[in-house]
Write a protein that binds this DNA or RNA. Sequence first.
DNA 1: TCGCGATCTGGAAACGTTTCCAAGTTCGCG
DNA 2: CGCGAACTTGGAAACGTTTCCAGATCGCGA
Lengths: 346, 346
Amino acid sequence: MTSTRATLIQVAERAGVSLASTSRALHGVGASKAMVERVRAAAEELGYSADAIGRSLRMKKTFQVAFAVADIGNPVYVEMMRAIHEVLAPHGYRVVVMSTGDTSDSTIELVRSLGSGFVDGMIVSPLRTDDGLITEIQQAPVPVVVIGRAMDDRGISSVSTDSAGGIGEAVRHLHTIGRRRIGFLNGPVDTTPGASRQRGFDAAVNAGDLAAERIERETAEDFTVGAGLEAARRILARVPEGAPQLDALVAANDLLAIGAIRAVRELGLSVPEDVAVTGMDDTEIGRVFQPSLTSVSLGASERGRAAARLMLQLADDPDQPAQQVSVGAELVVRESTTTATERGER
Amino acid sequence: MTSTRATLIQVAERAGVSLASTSRALHGVGASKAMVERVRAAAEELGYSADAIGRSLRMKKTFQVAFAVADIGNPVYVEMMRAIHEVLAPHGYRVVVMSTGDTSDSTIELVRSLGSGFVDGMIVSPLRTDDGLITEIQQAPVPVVVIGRAMDDRGISSVSTDSAGGIGEAVRHLHTIGRRRIGFLNGPVDTTPGASRQRGFDAAVNAGDLAAERIERETAEDFTVGAGLEAARRILARVPEGAPQLDALVAANDLLAIGAIRAVRELGLSVPEDVAVTGMDDTEIGRVFQPSLTSVSLGASERGRAAARLMLQLADDPDQPAQQVSVGAELVVRESTTTATERGER
DNA sequence: TCGCGATCTGGAAACGTTTCCAAGTTCGCG
DNA sequence: CGCGAACTTGGAAACGTTTCCAGATCGCGA
């Protein structure tokens, strides 16, 4: 530990050749067979391995990409991170995890910090977005790829998904299986995901072909099981005198959906028979839950991969035009809305 | 994006002072009031922010720490990572995520890569450990903190937990609530966690005061729900002619436990009445599951925090002696082993 | 008024690498 | 045999920062 690492200069001395030749030999370009042999041997003996910092300084390239989200613990972000890592690592890029914080301002701060040049680019999924943040991203000194909201005309590369349409799919699915009294459990509406989900639900229930008897909306404190439980209690308590209970709940993510299921069961009702419940994000936790969750997959892994691929291109040429990628939303039907026989299983 | 970032030299020119003074002024040491004022202004105008690479090269410090695990998606590791990030970020350290791969060899490879000096240290939780890996860690050019297995006498800093003892607690808990036919569902025994859990179970059932009627052991392919389901099916199918079914299952982690619960229910039995099930790791997924899982908490967050604190010390002085930290295991009793009344709730 | 210490400033080196440029060598081909 | 092209090599600069060192300036007390 106390012994200092070997430098290229030492390798050069040991091999008895110039620094320049040593560097070339190790990269295997513009060097004679003999030279390569000789330098390789010297490097081997000294246990040389090139210093990443020195190289970065000279090449103006860090081979690092930042991935920034509000909460690294959120399963959706974890899935993205894994996908990003899987795409980037084989290309020699390291992934630096960062936290955007809850607000647009703290995210702006983070984008600013890119100015110190410790990464070649950043993939960010902001919880809240405002014009200030957008401006900051446009002026960022390194390429930024935004996951979450299409940035079509702003010269920012982005990967988006149709969460609004996804909510619509969930609503139509519930309608198809005969549910007519539908409640919507959203998270905070002032967040980017909260806003688009709200839009999606409103559009779906306002569509002409939806024959609904009753529509209710409720907002949870945040996107967690606990908040979902409380919000679901509220919405289920709202049933009018003598009217029947809601027969379906659309939740804005899987955790809220699980909270909702708890609330339904508290009332002695069962899922899916009395109340069908849908989630969103298609997380492992939802797949594993009993009943397994019908959920709208937003392709977290796919979005992560797409963002990483965009970043690879941008890292190669930061001045290439911004690109938009869109990943489809897909409803995955499971036990929380249909019985096994309804799903056509034996 | 095309415009290049301002350098310290440019700030110096703009302020009309020397490079050295500029650097000092920005750090606020050994500079006159006027100088600081002047340089600050120039830096402000140019939007200067110090280049991390240049600084790293000179200071021989990257302000980065690597966190390496086999699977970044595993909830336990996610929890650790979050804790590590929370401790390190306020001290100005960035966290680089890396993957050790499944084997000891691939982990060795990773430790070797530290030789390129892109981080000031590494926190690693190896899935499999052998002498080669230990040697490599000892010789690593930067401090390494190992999470998972005590490294007392090897000069390696480590954070460990008593998972063996934790399994024992689970067994005793089941015994206390009257279960006498206990099955153990482990993951691969050739992994570090698998081995210690096996040890813990064996020790517990061999303890003199355990009056068990029957003990069964089974090994799952890996630590997932699917593997747990299959392994549980096997162990439950093993009931001898005319003998009663197992009345308790100890699983080596929460995912296996959830798989086990599924298997139990497949047989028309219920949890916890017919078969009590315990998990390990006390993950969110287990807390949220219905029934909520009785689980042995191994303090993932706490281990992460402890490792990060060790790393901070080592980053400060890499030559200080290795330290060992131990985090206690604690059984958290929930619905999967006891009914509400048994737990003393109303 | 002088001397001395404290404070401030600038020059220059150093961190480790890649790459431009020029000089030297080799080789092939006319 | 000679000439140019192709290849190989070494010197040196550059990336952006911090910090050592020496010199200059200032203030203060004797």
